[in-house]
C-alpha cells in the first residue's frame, strides 16, 4: 500500500496535467474556428481558377499544356505529403502517413520511383524512415497557412514534371469533414483531372462550352495559361494545407478533451485509494491506542 503522502503527490501531478490538457483543448477550439474560415475562404479562388484554366485550355486546342497532357508511360511519381508540425493531435498524422505508406508500397511494387515533398515536420521525419526520397520540404508553417510558403516546394516538383523527371503529381492530406471526423485523402493533381471536386465530394465539370465564345488575351493565351495553371496547382496545395490545419486543430481539440476526461477519472480513482489508506491508518492508530490502554 503506498503511503498517503505519495498518493497526494500523484493526485497533484495528474491535476496539473489536466490543467494543461484543458488549456490546450481550449486553445485548439479557438484556433479551429479561424482555420475553418480560412479553409472556406480559398474555395472561390480555386473554383474560378479551375474554370478559367480549363476554358482557356479548351479554347486553344492547338496548345497542349503539359499539365493537362496525360503521359503514356508513368515511370516516376511526385507526391506532396501534408502533415502537421506538432503532435498531440490524435491519429491524424498516423492515418495520412499510413495511406502514403500503402500507396508507396503499391507504387514500388509496380516498379515506379517516388519523389516526396514534405509539408510539415511529421511527414519530413517519417518519409525518410519509410525509405522515401524527400526532394523538398517546408516546415514550421505556423497557425496561418501562407501561399508563399507553399510556392517553393510546389514549384520544385512542377519543374521536375516539366523536365520529365516525374510523370504524375499526387497530394496527400487530411480532409476536414467535421469537427469529429477527418479523413486522410490522396489524389492526383497533375495531369489536371478534368473535373473539380467540391467539398461535399460532388464532382463538377468545367462550366464552359468551348467554341461558343473566347476571351481576348493580353498578351497571349499560352503565357496566361502557363501562369494560371501554376496558380491553380498552388491553390490546390494551399487548400490541402489549409484543410490539414483545420483538421489538426479539431483533432487536437478532441484528443485533448479525451485526455482531460481521462485525467478526471484517474483523479477520482486516486482520491478513493487515498481516502481508504487514510482511514486504514486512522483505524490502525486507534486500535494501537486501545490495545496499549488495555495492556496498562
Amino acid at each position: 500500500m503506498p503511503s498517503s503522502k505519495e498518493i497526494r503527490g500523484k493526485i497533484r501531478s495528474v491535476q496539473n496535467t489536466r490543467k494543461i490538457t484543458k488549456a490546450m483543448e481550449m486553445v485548439a477550439a479557438s484556433k479551429m474556428r479561424k482555420a475553418q474560415d480560412r479553409m472556406r475562404a480559398s474555395r472561390p479562388y480555386l473554383e474560378r481558377a479551375f474554370n478559367i484554366a480549363i476554358h482557356v485550355a479548351q479554347a486553344n486546342a492547338e496548345y497542349r499544356h503539359p499539365f493537362l497532357h496525360k503521359r503514356e508511360t508513368v515511370k516516376r511519381i511526385g507526391a506532396i505529403v501534408v502533415t502537421t508540425d506538432k503532435g498531440l493531435c490524435g491519429g491524424l498524422n498516423t492515418n495520412v502517413l499510413r495511406l502514403v505508406l500503402s500507396k508507396h508500397k503499391e507504387w514500388t511494387a509496380a516498379g515506379l520511383g517516388v519523389d516526396y515533398v514534405a509539408i510539415g515536420g511529421k511527414g519530413l521525419a517519417f518519409l525518410p524512415r519509410m525509405g522515401g526520397n524527400v526532394v523538398a520540404s517546408v516546415v514550421q508553417l505556423g497557425d496561418r497557412p501562407h501561399l508563399d510558403r507553399v510556392v517553393g516546394p510546389v514549384k520544385s516538383l512542377l519543374d521536375r514534371y516539366i523536365a520529365g523527371e516525374v510523370d504524375e503529381v499526387w497530394v496527400f492530406y487530411t480532409s476536414f469533414i467535421n469537427t469529429m471526423k477527418q479523413e486522410p485523402r490522396g489524389g492526383r493533381v497533375v495531369p489536371v483531372p478534368m473535373r473539380f471536386q467540391k467539398p461535399s465530394g460532388e464532382l463538377v465539370k468545367p462550366e464552359s462550352a468551348a467554341g461558343s465564345w473566347d476571351y481576348i488575351y493580353e498578351p497571349d493565351a499560352r503565357t496566361l495559361l502557363d501562369g494560371m495553371m501554376r496558380r491553380y496547382i498552388e491553390a490546390i496545395v494551399y487548400q490541402a494545407v489549409a484543410e490539414n490545419m483545420g483538421s489538426e486543430q479539431s483533432a487536437r481539440m478532441v484528443a485533448m478533451k479525451a485526455a482531460t476526461d481521462n485525467a478526471g477519472k484517474i483523479i477520482n480513482e486516486l482520491q478513493l485509494i487515498y481516502n481508504k489508506t487514510r482511514q486504514a491508518a486512522i483505524t490502525k492508530e486507534l486500535s494501537e491506542i486501545v490495545g496499549g490502554a488495555a495492556a496498562v
Binding site: V117, L124, V135, A136, V138, V151, G152, P153, K155, S156
Partner: peptide
Amino acid sequence: DEKAALEAKRAA
C-alpha cells in the same frame, strides 16, 4: 519563385 523552390530543396 525559383528561390523559394531552391529553399525548399535546401531544407530537405
